[in-house]
Design a protein around this nucleic acid. Structure first.
Length: 735
DNA sequence: GGAAATTACTTTTTT
DNA sequence: AGTAATTTCC
């Protein structure tokens, strides 16, 4: 032990017994089951600090992996607050970021060009579409998105085309596309997200020297959000740990919460936690069950909900805080009423002195935000929506980045195709087809083909112009700074000019200027990490692909926080509204057809509820506008799973104000008694009426058809689904 | 080649 | 409803 006990003590001060146990575990693999609000990040960072401070490992001897850049940054920030160390050489980052780093360092062994570029999902999709055209694949039978999903999930399972099973013609064709796609990427020097990991994994498995080097270096491996790892990520971790016979046995410190696994839809395997226990003969399982975030009413509600799940590792959160306020439940008349309820409550909280930043509004799907945004906007309540389009995903930014990519590497076909005719310069579909044809014939990049065409005469004015433009930009880019390059890319390309002439191009111009600012701050933040003679262009491009998000405008302002439940994971707020708690929306109807879909939805609800510290509102609406149609829904089953004793029901106001239904005019003038002039048959039930059925339970009348003697009535029974019942036989009662 | 009209989509999402 | 993508029309 190299440091004094005094400073070590200060590091560990304030940890509870379980946290302390986790932080100071011996050099063995361990699984930390960290419940919501149990101090997970603190344990992880303190563990790192403690290992370093006690001299068990140097800062460069450990590997810490997270899923998001935000989490990685947070960890480094907290670490530097605990220890006076330089974090620059440390391997703390996302799976993708670390793989990128490793592949850049060993690009030759990984069979990649030094300037290899990373395709984001949109790039990947357009690459697939382009390939499918070349291969003459019917995109009706093989929707490009589906092909992309197939390729990505294969890679995430660690599989290449040659090792995928395919017994029928359809999947054989899929496999063929997969194979060709990989060839195309290799030819173009580009790598998609899943490829970063797979390539890295293959490099380490194949190249014993490199593997041994890293295995010898990283004695300690720490993984955050372990429940979200997919198969390939787990294989990757095993490789670093060294599981073979003559290999070292580095240890993995995995932190996770099976109850917060909400990413199965993108390949996450909670089962990795159990596999990890077995594969690594884990003897140290530490459960962090004391919650420091919420009052017990909120926590008990969360526990009650999650206890309905069957497959759990088992954990029960508790708190020593008092029971606090009851959980408030509001049943709204419709979505607009729900929004106005939220607006009223937020106003009230705000006038009671709550900061808007302390209040979050959560919903299951992004589409739900619009109605509430509208209400907030017309009531002058500042709000910020997280998610949605990210900065580097905006069209104008992607265009500018494409020009930058072409400076770096004109053979980048993805980039070339994006801007060869944007702004338009007379290269239409036909000329493009010809170009692609000759590139195929010569087996070269589009850029090469274009150069050849220009050399051989008759290239067409547009193409000639484009080639000389790119050459010009490349020339001018020599020896200038990244910032200047970005300026050139936006001006010389004609992008800025184009948007200036556009009617609603002001925002786009502003974004282009913002891109130049991004380049400036990138240089400022990374100047010491870059080599002297490097402009930092490659690094900047990588940064843009890997960190598309995190660009939030006016972060400082006090505003209500709006986001999906997924986006809220890891965050906490003093007050939380969870809206749209109806069957079909939460749990989402699509989830019911998926394997264990309902359990994942329940975990989602659990995550949502555990975000709240002091006050929690749950709301649902009897009807809402969805996909341009009014839908009648019943309350989410998750509401029924909360004991009544924890709840306080706030009931809706007597009737909706007429003005509230302005956005769907003839919709909801009180529930219509169905008796139009042609159809005299008196419908005994109102649409929207809640009913109970002996067999199907609670439901809501959705529509009807037929006449008095032969009437069928459609009822949404939520968990039982939509049913048509013959009026004559259905024994319905008012609920 | 570019604008206008039509059609398809709509759970969650990081990298 | 709202938007993105695609097709049609000039």
């Amino acid at each position: 032990m190299t440091t004094s006990n005094a400073s070590q003590d200060s590091l560990l001060t304030g940890l509870n017994n379980k946290q302390l146990e986790a932080v100071t575990l011996p050099h063995q693999s361990a699984l930390i089951l960290a419940g919501a609000g149990s101090g997970k990040t603190r344990v992880l960072t303190t563990r790192i600090a403690w290992l370093i401070q006690t001299g068990q490992v140097s800062p460069t001897g450990l590997l810490a992996v997270t899923f998001t850049n935000k989490a990685a940054k947070e960890m480094l920030t907290r670490l530097t607050a605990m220890l006076p160390i330089n974090t620059r050489g440390m391997w703390v980052g996302t799976f993708h970021g670390l793989c990128n780093r490793l592949l850049r360092a060993h690009h030759r062994e990984a069979l990649l060009p030094a300037t290899f570029q990373i395709l984001d999902s949109a790039d990947q999709l357009s690459a697939i579409k382009r390939l499918m055209k070349v291969m003459n694949v019917d995109d009706e039978k093989f929707p490009p998105k589906q092909v992309m999903g197939y390729i990505n999930s294969c890679k995430e399972e660690g599989l290449r085309a040659h090792s995928v099973d395919a017994y029928d013609p359809h999947s054989q064709r899929m496999r063929e596309i997969f194979e060709e796609y990989d060839k195309q990427c290799q030819r173009e020097g580009v790598v998609d997200f899943a490829e970063l990991l797979l390539r890295c994994y293959e490099l380490l498995s194949r190249d014993t020297n490199i593997r041994k080097h890293y295995q010898a270096r990283f004695k300690y491996i720490l993984v955050d959000e372990f429940q979200d790892t997919n198969k390939l990520q787990y294989m990757w971790l095993k490789l670093f740990a060294g599981m073979g016979k003559e290999e070292p046995n580095n240890c993995i410190f995995a932190v996770g919460d099976d109850d917060q696994s909400i990413y199965a839809f993108r390949g996450a395997r909670v089962g990795n936690m159990r596999d990890f226990e077995v594969d690594f003969k884990v003897q140290n399982i530490v459960k962090l069950e004391e919650n420091y975030r919420s009052h017990s009413n909120i926590l008990d509600a969360a526990n009650a909900i999650i206890s309905n799940n069957k497959n759990r590792l088992g954990k029960n959160l508790w708190t020593s805080a008092g029971e606090g306020e009851p959980v408030r439940v509001y049943q709204a008349y419709n979505d607009i009423d729900e929004a106005s309820f939220i607006v009223d409550e937020v106003k009230m909280l705000h006038s009671d002195g709550w900061a808007l930043n302390d209040i979050a509004l959560l919903y299951r799907s992004n589409a739900q935000s619009r109605v509430i945004e509208h209400a907030l906007f017309s009531n002058n309540i500042p709000y910020r929506v997280y998610g949605g389009l990210r900065f580097f995903e905006r069209a104008e930014i992607k265009h500018a980045m494409a020009y930058l990519r072409l400076i770096n590497n004109p053979e980048d076909d993805v980039a070339l195709l994006r801007v060869i005719n944007f702004p338009t310069r007379g290269i239409g579909a036909r000329s493009l087809e010809q170009l692609q044809e000759s590139a195929r014939a010569q087996d070269c990049s589009l850029w090469q083909a274009a150069i050849n065409k220009v050399g051989n005469g008759r290239p067409g004015k547009g193409l000639e112009g484009f080639v000389s433009l790119i050459k010009q930009i490349q020339d001018d880019a020599k020896g200038i700074t990244l910032t200047e390059m970005t300026e050139i890319a936006t001006t010389m390309s004609g992008l800025k000019n184009f948007y200036q002439l556009e009617k609603e191009g002001e925002d786009r111009i502003a974004n282009l200027d913002e891109l130049i600012n991004a380049a400036v701050s990138f240089m400022n933040n990374n100047s010491d990490a870059l080599e002297d003679n490097s402009s930092g262009l490659t690094e900047f491009l990588t940064h843009a692909s890997l960190e598309a998000g995190e660009h939030q405008a006016d972060v400082g302002a006090d505003a209500l926080q709006m986001m999906t439940v997924h986006a809220a994971k890891g965050l906490e707020f003093k007050g939380v509204f969870i809206s749209g708690l109806e069957e079909g929306l939460c749990p989402h109807e699509n989830s019911l057809y998926e394997n264990n879909g309902l359990e994942e939805e329940r975990r989602l609800m659990y995550v949502a509820v555990t975000r709240a510290r002091q006050r929690l509102y749950l709301s649902h609406a009897q009807s809402r506008m969805l996909h341009g149609q009014i839908r009648y829904g019943i309350a989410s089953r998750f509401l029924d799973e909360i004991p009544d004793a924890l709840l306080k029901r706030l009931n809706s106001k007597p009737a909706p104000k007429p003005s509230m239904s302005s956005h769907y005019d003839n919709s909801y003038q009180g529930a219509p008694t169905v008796s139009s002039s042609e159809q005299k048959s008196a419908m005994p039930w109102k649409i929207g009426q809640a009913v109970t059925h002996a067999k199907f339970g609670q439901g809501v009348v959705v529509s009807y058809e037929g006449n008095a003697s032969d009437m069928r009535i459609q009822i949404n029974f939520g968990r039982e689904g939509l049913k048509w019942l013959a009026m004559e036989y259905a024994k319905l009662e008012k609920a």
